[in-house]
Computed example of a mutant assay.
Amino acid sequence: MQDVGTLYIVATPIGNLEDITQRALRILKDVDVIAAEDTRHSQKLLQQYEISTKLISLHDHNEAQRGKQLVERMRNGENVALISDAGTPLISDPGYTLVNYCRDAGVKVVPIPGACAAITALCAAGLATDKFIFEGFLPVKQQAKEHALSRLIKQTATTIFYESPRRIEDTVSMISEVLGADRQLVVAKELTKTFETFYADEAQNVLSWLQRDPNHQRGEFVLMVAGVENEESDIPEEAESLLLLLCDSLPLKKAAAIVATHYTVKKNALYQRGLALQGKD
């Protein structure tokens, strides 16, 4: 019985062509065919490393048909590498359908890790990294975009988006409106390239920065939104009990001020917690 081939999910550089692993280069040389989102774009990478493996296209418009063809080739013993235009395949890029075809057909899928724009941006952004959410691209239509952003009003984790140059100004403007002009943002553009840029400020100031110079809106963007501070988690149970006790004879605002001094907890956090405990939030 003929051995079944393997699908390799190969991460490629997001800008600087040196950001590729030795394992990735070996796999790209050894497989029978490379499925690429844009063969003309990927050819530059292969030429850089003198890789002559055959390239075929696999993108959003042909993935269903091409995926079935590739699975059949792997069932007949061929090995296939999947790459995107940049970074890790399937992260806001094609490949989901192909991977599922392989899983259903019993074809082994092996990830070859490497660059990913979202993680590259986050690690240098200066925002919280203990918990984060990747949302990919926001909806294009205004109402859908506003709805998606409204879900972040109380989000405590850092949220990561990808955004195109033609929509970055509109997106930041809407973030300022929906999440507040003072919400902390970090914009990362042209990652690992010559003009790599990080700009961190409040939403209203990031918008002004984008509008100040047309060059600030050029390139591919990673947009990171700081989460809101989870103040309630720092309130001890004893503080809540005292707050409720004092509220029997004092206004909530006064009670919160007293408890804040006694337990070294933020007064506003206690006030908001008091509203919630009283069922007024």
Rank of each mutant, 00 (worst) to 15 (best):
I119P: 02
L244V: 13
F134A: 09
V178E: 15
A124Q: 12
A200G: 14
M1E: 08
I112W: 00
E229V: 12
A125G: 05
M1L: 07
G114Y: 08
A128W: 00
K267S: 11
K193L: 06
Y8T: 01
T21E: 04
A128K: 13
L28P: 04
V4R: 12
A157L: 07
N230T: 01
T129Q: 13
M174T: 14
E78I: 03
Q69A: 13
Q47L: 11
L223A: 02
R73Y: 03
L45I: 05
I20F: 05
T197Y: 12
S92R: 07
E190R: 00
P94L: 09
G67S: 11
Q143E: 11
P111R: 05
N230C: 04
V178S: 10
S57M: 00
K254V: 13
F195K: 05
G15Y: 00
M1C: 04
V222H: 02
G136F: 02
A128F: 00
R167E: 08
L244F: 02
L191E: 10
Q204M: 09
I119A: 13
A117V: 07
F134L: 12
L246M: 12
R75I: 11
I14A: 08
A35D: 05
L28E: 04
L7A: 06
L82R: 03
A118V: 15
L244K: 13
L243N: 07
